[in-house]
Design a protein around this nucleic acid. Structure first.
Length: 500
RNA sequence: GGGGCUGUAGCUCAGUAGGUAGAGCAACGGACUUUUAAUCCGUAGGUCUCGGGUUCGAGUCCCGACAGCCUCACCA
């Protein structure tokens, strides 16, 4: 349906026609027995001198390499008369192809004249080095696999416009240095997280994403509607409450790794849908979860071939050698504000000083806002900040004999909250009271503005004491791949729809 | 939602005081059997995001809209 009169596309369609005329399907088909380009490059050592004994003194020996078959996209081309050099890329690497008119024969040469940047081809040929030493496939047979009708991005700078990079992620992946590798690393990190949890005896489950009550966090939910039941439903904002029901049901080590949705602003660290891990371990506590967190992070670093002792994020050197530092909330609070953590009046004065509104707020809320404003960014870490003010932790067990302190930690690295974990509150009466207190005076739109009575009922049936852990997978991937924006670790971040 | 920045050829970017738009890459034609961001000669390619306004004249100045980025707010 070519409605475009773009001359660049027209030229490519003309070549497409010529390929078809040659009796070749320009859209290709099954092409077996290819070797990954990275694997082909590894066979360089198989290039050896043949018949070296017959060589005249002073004459270089004739080199021969293995026959190989590769497939991929043409990303660069250099034509030199009856010889052409193409750079072929697949998802493992890139290699130069050398096509000589007299070497490939008339038919192949004619086909080669119809090649454009972006086309997908397969080749058979010998792995060898050119005169200048560049490892190359000396093509003996060309296989045309797919025509690209659109011109690729600029060959040196790639696709720079951040909007186009996100809207046309396929181009970002196909042509921009390191993008595909970064997303493959994401996959390896996620696989590693699952493996570490499996190694610790956890089972993975799939909870509902459509919730009648969006609980487990305080965020505005996305609202949708079920027609047959004629009820509004919410896309889940957390995994917590259903996983805890499963603890009640006897799944002693259980986790879910999946998407949650929060109808909030978009920023370099926030996307409306993001990937969350939550894991719950019966008979554990937040210390158990710290050890698990260390294992998950360390294994993930190893899974992408990095050295835990020499990580880097945003120019900051990081050492992930376990154990990570453990500092109490009050310690880091006092250290980075110079205000005693146990002096609400001093904290209030300080908060006012730095421009925070304090009127009518609970002292712990003020403390928490000061923490976010002044302490978080200063936490390079990795550091477990432990023992939070209880009043800002409605789902957390209190410290024995210290009802004002909750057994909670957050893992901070470079000012980013990577993990959040509790010793889980399993007292149904206290849980109900905390929910009720939280509901007081909350605006209608707040997601927690409804009591999840079934969850309380589940607790009344007995939830074993447990440790629970949440990890923001996107932020973990950002951290481990040194990527400063969440948009670049999410394949298709939310954008406004393109104007039609 | 507030504030700031950006939007020019398919892509990457210039654009001088306001005077009818330039380069590189890509494309097209030509030369080249060892190039590697190949090189050399030539050709073609534009609703300057969109809509108003000021002006004899707007890519440029003003207003508005749209989109993206940064930032603040929201996000226990």
């Amino acid at each position: 349906m070519p409605e475009s009169i773009n001359p660049l596309e027209a030229a490519r369609r003309e070549k497409l026609r010529k390929i078809a005329e040659m009796g070749i399907d320009p859209w290709g088909g099954r092409f077996d027995n290819t070797q990954p380009i990275a694997a082909i490059r590894n066979r360089e050592s198989e290039i050896v001198a043949v018949g070296a004994g017959d060589c005249h003194v002073g004459q270089p020996p004739e080199m021969h390499g293995p026959l190989v078959r590769a497939a991929g996209r043409i990303v660069l081309q250099r034509r030199a008369g009856k010889l052409m050099f193409l750079d072929l890329r697949d998802w493992t690497g890139q290699i130069q192809l050398l096509i000589g008119k007299s070497q490939v024969g008339e038919q192949n040469w004619q086909l080669a004249q119809q090649l454009d940047l972006g086309d997908i081809i397969g080749v058979d040929g010998e792995l060898n080095r050119t005169r200048t030493g560049e490892l190359s496939i000396f093509v003996s047979q060309l296989h045309f696999l797919t025509k690209s009708l659109e011109p690729p991005p600029e060959k040196y700078h790639g696709l720079q416009d951040p909007e186009l990079r996100q809207r046309m992620r396929y181009l970002d992946l196909a042509y921009n240095e390191g993008v595909l590798q970064r997303f493959l690393k994401r996959t390896h990190i996620v696989q590693s997280v699952r493996q570490t949890l499996a190694d610790h005896g956890f089972v993975e489950v799939e909870g509902p994403t459509l919730h009648a009550i969006a609980g487990g966090a305080a965020a505005r939910p996305f609202i949708t509607h079920h027609n047959a039941l004629d009820i509004d439903l919410y896309l889940r904002i957390a995994l917590e409450l259903h996983l805890k029901r499963l603890l009640v049901g006897g799944l002693e080590r259980v986790y879910e790794l999946g998407r949650v949705y929060r109808n909030e602003g978009i920023s370099p660290r926030h996307n409306p849908e993001f990937t969350m891990l939550e894991a719950y371990q019966a008979y554990g506590d937040y210390h158990t979860m710290m050890e698990l967190t260390e294992q998950i992070v360390l294994q993930a670093i190893r899974a992408i071939g990095a050295d835990p002792a020499q990580m880097q994020f945003a120019g900051q050197k990081l050492d992930f050698t376990a154990p990570f530092a453990r500092r109490t909330y009050d310690e880091v609070f006092a250290e980075h504000t110079g205000v005693p953590a146990d002096d609400p009046e001093a904290i209030r004065r300080y908060a006012t000083q730095i421009g925070l509104e304090t009127a009518g707020k609970h002292p712990d809320v003020i403390k928490s806002e000061v923490f976010e404003a002044k302490v978080e960014d200063a936490l390079i870490g990795p550091v477990f900040v432990i023992d939070y003010p209880a009043s800002i932790c409605p789902l957390t067990k209190r410290k024995r004999h210290r009802p004002d302190i909750a057994e909670r930690f957050e893992l901070y690295v470079c000012g980013m909250e990577i993990a959040n974990a509790y010793t889980e509150l399993n007292d149904p009466d206290l849980q109900e009271e905390l929910f009720s207190r939280q509901l007081e005076g909350l605006p209608e739109e707040q997601s927690m503005a409804r009591m999840d009575r079934d969850f309380i009922r589940a607790l009344r049936h007995g939830m074993p004491p447990a440790g629970g852990l949440g990890i923001g997978i996107d932020r973990l991937v950002m951290l481990l791949t040194d990527t400063p924006t969440i948009r670049d670790v999410i394949l298709f971040p939310l954008l406004r729809p393109e104007a039609q």
